[in-house]
Write a protein that binds this DNA or RNA. Structure first.
Length: 501
RNA sequence: CGGGGUGUAGCGCAGUCUGGCUAGCGCACCUGCUUUGGGAGCAGGGGGUCGAAGGUUCGAAUCCUUUCACCCCGACCA
């Protein structure tokens, strides 16, 4: 009988499968605060590894970390018109600074603030206000700052990791003397994200430009990396914004050039959030649970000792400990190899499934028979079968196995995307692609549709009933001119359309 | 903010229509024995006063009133 680790399967009920994977892998859970999640050690460990890879890349590309306040004075947010409009509907507002005993017990807010404070939904305004002070001369530029923090966007429909009221992210903010330099920065950081997604998350992405309707509020241009999840929906995995002089004009970020003229700086911002953990789950998980790409795994290998009595136990544990020390010497992807020896007093099968559901890349089972033959029983999370190999061979090839798993995950995800990306030249074909056979209980359908189009509000309107959005206009391979399948007008380039998270 | 629904043990639920012994069941948890290369079996055990407040009644998880919370479907969104 093929019993799966997760009920239901992806095919049966994808959204429910997603929730169950998180629960089974013990990654996170909902908290008592609606819309806010608690990230548990296994989920947080993955995020920490994401942080460490990205942080290194940010520093390599000339950025420094700093920290800015959680609270933003209301009038800061009001300065940039589009920015206000984009975020006003989802801001948490702090109006008081004290609690006092209420008439009927409990506590009531007191000490009303002169000006309400907004819990940051993003920090362009408060960082910009500091940039305005720090920047006076062309010699102060470029200024390239990143911060790791939490932000709050009051969401009505939370989904753990994908959309929560509070989430963790990094936000980079830079200021430059010229438009070209700011544009180069915007593109470079998109490439950093794309490289991270593909080489560390094993997640193939399309690099593209957002349409006017999907752009960041206040940006002149938003670049994005878009990935396909296993239900064929798109997920925006990271964005990089060219802000032009919009914020610098609103916030007076000015500098004197070499010839003494005063100009407004050109700014960018770019962010990537804990949403990526959700992307990782939906891109790689299977019906037995999570699969963590080795390069981001909190534990690469779990050793499971198998024994029947105390005598066997001590022998097996000695063998396991020495194996662990040997493996501990190795490094994988700039980290020490992380090896867990799980000697909890649990039945073997239960313990094994526990680690399968968590997605540990490699399981090593060690029992009395292995001691005699000097071997280990190795199972890879990307394969169903396990096999016996000599201990020395295993230690000698383990790093290679991890790379193979990493590659397998990437190849699988790429194949999924390629198999479900189609070009369309007529609107009828397009509509059919996005219409489920059974509308009351939609099956997994659709994918990425690539079509010529013109970026106008009418097109966005036409897409609404289908619940499809323009994900991006790909940066690569997008020179060919054609006809917009929505309006019939001549179109300069194509866009990718999909249902999205 | 509109429509629908649910609150009973850590989790998932039955019981509510038709009020009545000490409020049940499954999973999880603890103990013991048997098992052990694979998500164990048997036996025993701990844990809830039924979202909250008020009312009707000899008697309320169950009926009535008020209230709170959460979930799902729509509009919004990294």
């Amino acid at each position: 009988m093929a019993k799966t680790g997760i009920t239901p399967t992806r095919e049966q009920d994808y959204p429910e499968w997603y929730q169950q994977v998180i629960k089974a892998a013990d990654m996170a859970e909902n908290s008592d605060v609606r819309g806010c999640m608690v990230i548990k050690p296994w989920g947080y460990g993955i995020w920490e590894n994401m942080q460490s890879v990205l942080d290194r890349r940010f520093k390599q590309t000339g950025h420094e970390n700093a920290y800015f306040p959680l609270f933003i004075p209301k009038h800061f947010l009001e300065k940039e018109a589009e920015h206000v409009e984009g975020f006003a509907k989802e801001c948490a507002v702090v109006t008081h600074h004290r609690l006092e005993p209420g008439p009927e017990g409990g506590l009531v807010p007191a000490g009303e603030l002169e000006e309400p404070l907004i819990v940051r939904p993003t920090s362009e305004t408060i960082i910009g206000s500091m940039f305005a002070k720090w920047i006076q001369s062309y010699r102060d530029l470029p200024l390239k700052i990143n911060q790791w923090c939490n932000v709050v966007r009051w969401e009505m429909r939370p989904r753990i990791f994908l959309r929560t009221a509070e989430f963790l992210w990094q936000e980079g903010h830079t200021a430059h003397a010229t438009q070209e330099e700011a544009m180069d920065e915007t593109k470079m950081m998109l490439d950093v994200y794309a490289d991270f997604a593909e080489n560390h998350m094993a997640l193939p992405v399309v690099r593209g430009e957002k349409t006017a309707g999907e752009r960041f509020p206040g940006a002149d241009m938003t670049l994005t990396i878009e990935a396909m999840m296993q239900d064929r929906k798109a997920l925006q995995a990271g964005t990089s914004h060219f802000l032009g002089q919009n914020f610098s004009k609103a916030q007076e970020i000015k500098f004197h050039d070499q010839d003494g003229t005063e100009s407004h700086a050109w700014t960018t911002s770019w962010g990537l959030s804990t949403r990526m953990v959700g992307a990782l789950i939906m891109a790689h998980g299977d019906d037995d649970g999570l699969i963590v790409p080795p390069r981001l795994a909190p534990k690469h290998i779990v050793i499971l000792p198998i024994y029947r009595n105390d005598e066997e136990r001590s022998k097996v544990l000695d063998y396991c400990n020495s194996l662990k020390s040997e493996l501990d010497q190795l490094e994988y992807s700039r980290r020490e190899l992380q090896v867990l020896l799980d000697d909890r007093d649990l039945r073997g099968g239960e313990k094994k499934w526990h680690h399968i559901k968590k997605g540990v890349p490699i399981r090593v089972e060690v029992g009395p028979r292995d001691l005699e033959s000097g071997s280990v029983f190795v199972g890879r999370r990307d394969q169903a079968k396990s096999s016996s190999v000599s201990r020395d061979e295993f230690v000698g090839t383990v790093l290679q196995i991890l790379d193979e798993i990493q590659q397998t995950l990437f190849d699988r995800a790429l194949k999924l995307r390629e198999d479900n990306t189609h070009s369309f030249t007529t609107l009828d074909e397009f509509k059919e692609f996005f219409t489920p056979v059974n509308p009351s209980k939609p099956e997994i359908h659709g994918g990425f549709a690539v079509c010529h189009f013109v970026d106008t509000p009418e097109v966005e309107e036409m897409l609404k009933p289908l619940k499809v959005t323009a994900r991006c206009m790909p940066l690569e391979d997008n020179e060919e001119k054609g006809t917009c399948i929505f309006t019939g007008q001549p179109a300069d380039r194509k866009a990718i359309f999909a249902k999205a998270y």
